[in-house]
Design a protein around this nucleic acid. Structure first.
Lengths: 187, 187
DNA sequence: ACCTGAACACCGTTCAAGT
DNA sequence: ACCTGAACACCGTTCAAGT
């Protein structure tokens, strides 16, 4: 007894993310992840409860890629930085990213990201209820856009076109939240 | 020979949709769909090329639930009607709906829906390029919202709150497109 | 022409057994 | 304590065989 562990939960999640990035979500089988770590599939069950738990862990790992922006920056820039980080993450992990829209937003990392956005929106002058509503709409629009782009729904368009689309999305969000802009999000 | 067919592709898709609605996407196995039709799993392969083809057919079937709005209605109302139909479809088919965001938008039904939205946007005064861009952003926001709501990402909120969120989303879209509103989508 | 039975390679998961 | 071998029920898919 006291045998040292060959693998760990973070190592399992990292291996699973690599498999997903390289070969797609369907290729993420317990055997493929285990093989990448040099163990058998059964060894994974010591570090993840089930395959579903593994996928939840993958989502949580993705969320760590959205770092909290420097709080000294203006709120508009903080929102844009987070949105851009989300979009970049979708580009790196197109297979896993769509899971963000299907799994509950009630994990530690999800709360952390949401709290950052909420803080920016309150700084823009929205009260708690309006900020919460704006956060739901903004996160949905940004996740939806990033997921669509990563899935290739806009694939036949050049990168410049997609970049311009994303800029406009950020503009609309900004205008909607800004005290001097369209007031839809503030009323 | 000349043996009459017991099942058809539409029947297979309808059975698969029922299974998905009742028991989730993971429950959509070839055997489960076949069992609902009273045949064996192998019989399905005469009507769908593969399970992937079956899922593509399911997406196509969902898209038929967004009927083209009466063209005599004003563009704003047409957009709202389509968006509302999309949201209602997500509510009826929460398991299948997320596939809309992951599969290509280059099918007959997808084109039909997109053309309807594009026509409304041109009527609002957008040129071809701006209308195409607005369509991408609008469809993404609406699909993202509907998928999130159906997946329960907003599940802890009361229906009234979600209805109000959706109204605001429609308002923002309208303001963004309207000649007299915020000009982000028109510049 | 349409469906079935048998078979194949694979999947997630369990459990007792090894070290 | 940690990992493995063997086993189970299931999955998508094929192909020759039945009617």
């Amino acid at each position: 007894m006291g045998r040292p562990a060959q693998i760990s939960r973070p190592a399992v999640l990292a291996a699973a993310l690599e498999v997903a990035d390289e070969h797609g979500l369907d290729a993420v089988t317990m055997q493929a992840v285990a093989a990448r770590l040099g163990v058998t599939a059964m060894a994974l069950y010591r570090h993840v409860r089930s395959k579903d738990d593994l996928l939840d862990g993958l989502v949580e790992a993705l969320l760590t890629e959205f770092p909290p922006p420097d709080p000294s920056l203006p709120w508009r820039e903080r929102l844009a930085l987070t949105a851009t980080a989300v979009r970049a993450s979708a580009g790196r992990h197109p297979a896993v990213f769509p899971l963000l829209l299907r799994r509950p937003a009630e994990t530690d990392q999800a709360r952390r990201v949401r709290d950052g956005v909420l803080a920016a929106l309150r700084e823009a002058g929205l009260d708690d209820e309006r900020a919460a509503r704006a956060e739901r709409l903004i996160s949905t629009a940004v996740l939806g856009y990033a997921a669509s782009e990563a899935a290739g729904r806009f694939g036949h368009h050049a990168r410049e076109v997609r970049d311009a689309d994303f800029e406009i999305l950020l503009d609309v969000i900004g205008a909607c939240v800004d005290p001097g802009g369209s007031r839809s999000c503030r009323e």
